[in-house]
């Protein structure tokens, strides 16, 4: 166990906000160390609810997240809340502009809300690789509800469902691809469906098509999707709201709370599976890093690849070679 990590964990647990935010950075930079975080904090309280919020770009996710946060703070003034907002990294430079906070700034000075923006860093699936660790650290500092807003770039965002207790899918009229996205997997990922911007033309129409799509889906198919969708989407799972005007947010939060109450027990098993899944990913991440390391930088990897291209070796042979080399590598990356 690395001492520095251990210190950060200790300080974060004692309520040091800077330590907590540094710990988050550390876990995002080195997600393979999630296991260390888990093992050192298994006695810590964990959040009551981790709520995923996903949907098409322009559906108003950030504004909705902001409103849900506001509603929770009104209802439970003495309880902490965390928000994680993920934005895409540039595939060219690795940099990112994380702008979700703009809509949430009014919570910025609320000592009971901790907001963290994450860049996807090339990770597909709508989250960032370290997102789960950030959830965990938010748990350490006492956040009891955590809202996780996904990138919102398209159809591959179902990952959020496997990382959260409960997933909200946000749609809005005028977003032509909403229903397409649903058909491409978001429907299975969602527990509750929100039609935002309900004051706009086309909201009713969207509601109708959403309901018909949800009803068309056979029950067993949804079950077999492997996520936590153990309830068939029904009309009660669809909400018309206006995040911009703050309308119907209270009803939505009522539903979230009811759902949480009903499924609380089932989530325990789900969370156990999540932990296993995350450790598996951390393990793969460590292997990936080691293999990348032995593959070499600055021309070394190109040289190896050229050998394949010249027919001197095959992909399978080279892979075995790399794994052998990686096996001889210590934790620090020395050969």
């Amino acid at each position: 166990m690395n001492n520095e990590l251990s210190n950060l964990i200790h300080q974060a647990r004692s309520g040091d906000i800077r330590a907590a935010s540094r710990l988050m950075s550390r876990m995002v930079d080195e997600p393979q160390r999630l296991v260390e975080l888990f093992s050192e904090t298994d006695d810590c309280p964990q959040p009551r609810l981790v709520l995923g919020i996903t949907g098409a770009p322009g559906s108003g996710k950030s504004t909705l997240t902001d409103r849900i946060a506001g509603e929770y703070r009104n209802r439970y003034p003495d309880r902490k809340l965390g928000i994680i907002a993920v934005d895409p990294s540039s595939p060219f430079t690795g940099g990112a502009v994380l702008g979700d906070r703009v809509r949430m700034m009014r919570h910025s000075t609320d000592p009971m809300i901790f907001i963290r923006s994450l860049a996807s860093r090339g990770h597909l699936g709508g989250l960032a690789l370290g997102a789960r660790a950030v959830v965990h650290v938010m748990g350490l500092i006492g956040c009891e509800v955590i809202l996780v807003e996904t990138v919102g770039v398209g159809q591959s965002e179902v990952e959020v469902a496997s990382r959260c207790d409960l997933t909200l899918v946000v749609l809005a009229p005028g977003q032509g691809d909403s229903i397409q996205m649903l058909k491409a997997g978001l429907m299975e990922a969602g527990n509750l469906f929100v039609i935002n911007k309900a004051d706009r033309d086309g909201a009713d129409q969207l509601y109708q098509s959403l309901v018909s799509v949800l009803q068309l889906k056979p029950k067993n198919e949804i079950r077999s999707a492997g996520y936590c969708t153990d309830v068939v989407p029904e009309l009660e799972n669809v909400f018309l709201v206006s995040a911009f005007e703050g309308r119907n947010i209270d009803r939505l939060v009522d539903a979230i709370e009811l759902y949480t109450h009903q499924h609380h027990e089932q989530w325990k098993a789900h969370r156990q599976r999540q932990v296993q899944e995350e450790v598996r990913e951390a393990l793969l991440e460590e292997v990936r890093r080691r293999v990348l390391k032995v593959m070499g930088v600055n021309g070394r990897s190109e040289a190896r690849i050229d050998r394949i291209l010249r027919g001197e070796t095959g992909v399978a042979e080279l892979a075995s070679e790399l794994m052998k080399e990686a096996a001889g590598m210590t934790e620090k990356g020395d050969l």
Binding site: G95, A96, L98, G99, R101, S117
Partner: peptide
Amino acid sequence: AQILRDAGFEVIYTG
């Protein structure tokens, strides 16, 4: 914010 992104930084833009 955009040129810092292009230079590989992660920029938190607060508006």
